[in-house]
């Protein structure tokens, strides 16, 4: 990655040192892209502290696909937000792509996200005023890449929406919108893809097609996939499943 600011490089250098010392400690670290140690998340609800995550530990290797499963309100999405650096833990440490994002300020985390992370959301999160192609090109433009138009056209073709490039989100079906979102997620060739209930808003058939596409692209790009779902079928397609219950994480045995 190439951070844009000198002060960021200082932080990077520090992290690099961290990583190097860790590498010496464990050869497994070499393949590790996400490492979560003792993370707690406590929020204030009507003046009372509410603990959403309890001492969460998690390790994800490069290229691995991991499903976080659990019922509504178990804390899956909170964990996902923390893993992606959208929020900070109350305590504990989170490393993403070799950076200790739990110690970074918001802008530094944004820089990490820009170059390493892609997202797919349950509610698609496409900008309503942008066409499919423009939505896909957005992360490239944030990265300042020149060939945004060509790359977005290419990947839209890959997800089968070649004909719908100039359509606006409200002119697309839910499944098509999610395919645009997947194209947007992969267009920067991120190291990690976070998906939050990617098929939650879709019917079974469409959901299956979207999931197929997600896994295909994942395999093609050798991306690490972390997805949050309560769909056991979808979870079963992952290399590994972890269960979340009342803010505590437990490793599930693949069935």
């Amino acid at each position: 990655m190439k951070p844009g600011k000198p002060n960021l490089q200082l932080v990077d250098a520090e992290n690099q040192a961290n990583i190097e010392s860790k590498e010496a400690a464990s050869s497994l670290d070499h393949h590790r892209i996400i490492q979560v140690d003792g993370v707690n998340r406590i929020v204030d609800v009507a003046g009372e502290p509410l603990q959403i995550l309890h001492e969460v530990d998690l390790r994800v290797s490069r290229g691995e696909t991991v499903a976080i499963v659990g019922s509504s309100g178990s804390g899956k999405s909170t964990l996902l937000g923390l893993l992606a650096g959208l929020d900070l833990p109350s305590s504990g440490k989170i490393e993403l792509a070799g950076e200790v994002i739990s110690a970074m300020d918001e802008d530094a985390r944004a820089a990490v996200r820009a170059s390493n992370v892609g997202f797919v959301f349950q509610s698609f999160q496409l900008l309503p005023n942008l066409t499919a192609a423009e939505n896909v090109a957005l992360p490239l433009e944030i990265l300042g890449k020149g060939e945004a138009t060509a790359l977005s056209a290419e990947i839209l073709k890959r997800v089968g929406l070649e004909e719908r490039q100039t359509h606006y989100p409200n002119q697309l079906s839910g499944g098509e919108q999610q395919r645009v979102a997947i194209a947007r997620a992969f267009v920067t060739k991120p190291a990690v893809l976070f998906a939050d209930e990617p098929t939650g808003n879709l019917d079974k058939n469409t959901g299956d097609l979207v999931a197929d596409l997600l896994f295909e692209l994942n395999a093609e790009n050798n991306t690490t996939l972390v997805l949050v779902t309560h769909d056991s079928g979808l979870a079963a397609r992952c290399d590994r499943q972890v269960g979340m219950e009342s803010g505590r994480l437990s490793e599930k045995i693949a069935s």
Partner: peptide, 16 residues
């Protein structure tokens, strides 16, 4: 707000 949140999520910084 949504656009701004999404741009941030995709890696744009506050000053951006």
């Amino acid at each position: 707000y949504d656009t701004s949140a999404l741009l941030r999520c995709l890696g744009a910084q506050q000053n951006d």
